[in-house]
Deep mutational scan, measured.
Amino acid sequence: MALNTPQITPTKKITVRAIGEELPRGDYQRCPQCDMLFSLPEINSHQSAYCPRCQAKIRDGRDWSLTRLAAMAFTMLLLMPFAWGEPLLHIWLLGIRIDANVMQGIWQMTKQGDAITGSMVFFCVIGAPLILVTSIAYLWFGNRLGMNLRPVLLMLERLKEWVMLDIYLVGIGVASIKVQDYAHIQAGVGLFSFVALVILTTVTLSHLNVEELWERFYPQRPATRRDEKLRVCLGCHFTGYPDQRGRCPRCHIPLRLRRRHSLQKCWAALLASIVLLLPANLLPISIIYLNGGRQEDTILSGIMSLASSNIAVAGIVFIASILVPFTKVIVMFTLLLSIHFKCQQGLRTRILLLRMVTWIGRWSMLDLFVISLTMSLINRDQILAFTMGPAAFYFGAAVILTILAVEWLDSRLLWDAHESGNARFDD
């Protein structure tokens, strides 16, 4: 018995066209964080690309023209004298008006014999932002004059995390709450300039795509075929072959399989920071003279006294001054041990922890910024005066060393310790 099946006739004509040209192939790229070699397709503007294995951002879609970056830099340069030299806060102490600005706080630190601690604050609040705007201006002028731009481009990517104007702005709020127990506070004209400078700096850093600047100024022929001998440069993120001198053909720094002496430098910085954190938390970090009496505060006791007036601000200072430094030390110690013992479990967790400490590390400088600003506000000789204690130097040095330890660690070593050939990683 035959089955009668109805015929289905399409209502619209289906047209099949042959592909007349070869589909576009992607360029081969190595991930600078996990060293995976993959094919990167062509990316349009405002599109980002991520590593298929570790999800690290390979290409950032946010990109401004150099002219727009230069305009932002010149605007920031105009704001800087007002943000640093004009009063941020006014207080009335014992019937006398006192003005506080950024430069005055750094000068008070240096004047009291601790120039190293003052230079830490100076670099993060004044030096690094000033280098940022002058570097962008150098790129703008240098591109037109045919100057060598490689050193500036190499420095810009590392400079971003040292620009800490946003953290200093939080420190202004913390210092205001600490001082309000002794005097009446009012915002100064410099505060508005400083807030504007923070906003412009944040926007500029978020749109400063150094890798795209490398592509514009020093374009290189990408690798179009897969080759395990391809290496990625950690300076400019170019994937290719080393030249005859073993250097990256684009930025001219040595092109090595792994960062040289990464573990040794990381261990040295980490152990030194552990040693410095002990006096930083045991010795007094601030000293207040009130009517001839002397009151010393460690980091913890200062947080407890701050909690009596504002528990939320005390929580912020606790996280930045105690929780973050010790968390960074514990995480980095764990990561280094996992590399030495070739741990194969929990790779995803370790990668996330490394990215976390990379982002939060700079916030530990908050305590030094609060001390710097408070020193310029309260300084009335023996009637009422505020000065920093010996722990300030140890704390600042420990924070900087932990930042350097994270920067010096080559994250690809975590993958080397893991089993080879993993296309995915999980716990």
Rank of each mutant, 00 (worst) to 15 (best):
G173Y: 01
F369M: 06
V102S: 05
P6M: 04
L366C: 10
C233R: 00
A175M: 00
S286G: 11
K160F: 10
L234N: 11
L130V: 14
L366D: 01
Q220T: 13
K342F: 13
F326R: 00
K265L: 05
L165H: 13
D381I: 01
R97M: 14
L37D: 07
R231Y: 11
L77I: 07
G105F: 01
Y28V: 09
H340W: 11
Q104D: 10
T9N: 09
T110R: 14
V324Q: 08
L77Y: 03
E42N: 06
V189K: 15
K57T: 05
F395M: 07
N44H: 07
I116D: 15
R144V: 08
I299F: 11
Q55T: 07
P24E: 07
L277S: 11
V16M: 08
C34T: 00
D426S: 06
G293P: 05
C343T: 11
L335T: 09
N310I: 05
M76P: 05
G173I: 13
S193G: 13
I58N: 05
I274R: 00
E228L: 13
H207L: 13
A137N: 13
L306I: 14
L208E: 08
Y289G: 01
L414R: 00
R221N: 14
F82P: 02
N281I: 10
I360H: 03
T298P: 14
S338Y: 15
F82K: 06
L270M: 11
N101I: 01
A223N: 12
I371T: 00
I185R: 01
Q47P: 04
C248A: 00
I98C: 02
A70W: 13
I43L: 06
S308A: 13
G235L: 02
P24K: 12
L191V: 10
L278I: 11
T334S: 10
M36I: 12
L335I: 09
I19E: 10
S420T: 09
A56G: 08
A272R: 00
A100K: 02
E407V: 11
R380F: 03
W92K: 02
G190P: 02
P249R: 08
F333L: 11
Y138W: 07
V174F: 06
G302E: 00
P41W: 03
G302F: 00
R362Y: 02
R158K: 12
Q244F: 11
Q345N: 06
W359H: 10
R247C: 12
G346S: 11
R62Y: 11
E22K: 06
M388E: 05
A320H: 01
R226N: 14
P6I: 05
Y218V: 06
L336Y: 07
D60M: 06
S376C: 04
I311P: 15
R68M: 04
V152S: 06
M103T: 05
L37F: 09
Q55A: 10
A115H: 04
I131P: 01
W363A: 03
R231M: 08
L347D: 10
A397M: 06
I316M: 13
K111R: 12
R226G: 15
T15L: 07
L255W: 15
H252R: 09
F369I: 05
S376E: 14
A280G: 09
V195H: 07
G171A: 12
A398S: 10
P219N: 14
S119L: 01
L69D: 04
Y289K: 01
A100F: 01
R53H: 07
D367W: 00
G421K: 02
I96N: 01
Q382G: 05
I299E: 00
I131N: 04
R231I: 14
W267P: 13
A187W: 13
W214H: 15
S338R: 11
L149M: 09
G240V: 08
W415I: 08
E157V: 14
A2K: 09
L78Q: 02
H340D: 09
T224M: 13
S206L: 15
Q264T: 05
L169A: 06
L77G: 10
N101Y: 02
M332A: 08
P41S: 05
L191Y: 02
V152A: 08
W415R: 09
I339C: 10
S135I: 01
P10R: 08
D99I: 04
F318C: 11
Q47V: 05
D99F: 05
T374I: 10
S321I: 03
T349H: 15
A385I: 03
L300G: 09
S338T: 10
G26M: 09
R259W: 15
G105T: 01
W140T: 15
V406M: 08
L337N: 10
A70Q: 11
T387E: 03
M356H: 10
Q264A: 05
Q244I: 08
V125L: 14
L3A: 07
I371M: 03
L373E: 05
S309D: 13
H418P: 13
L283M: 11
I43A: 08
L270F: 04
E22F: 05
H418V: 13
L271P: 01
E86R: 11
T201L: 10
R350S: 06
H261V: 05
F194E: 08
L373I: 08
L263C: 13
I58C: 04
S308D: 10
D35F: 04
V102D: 00
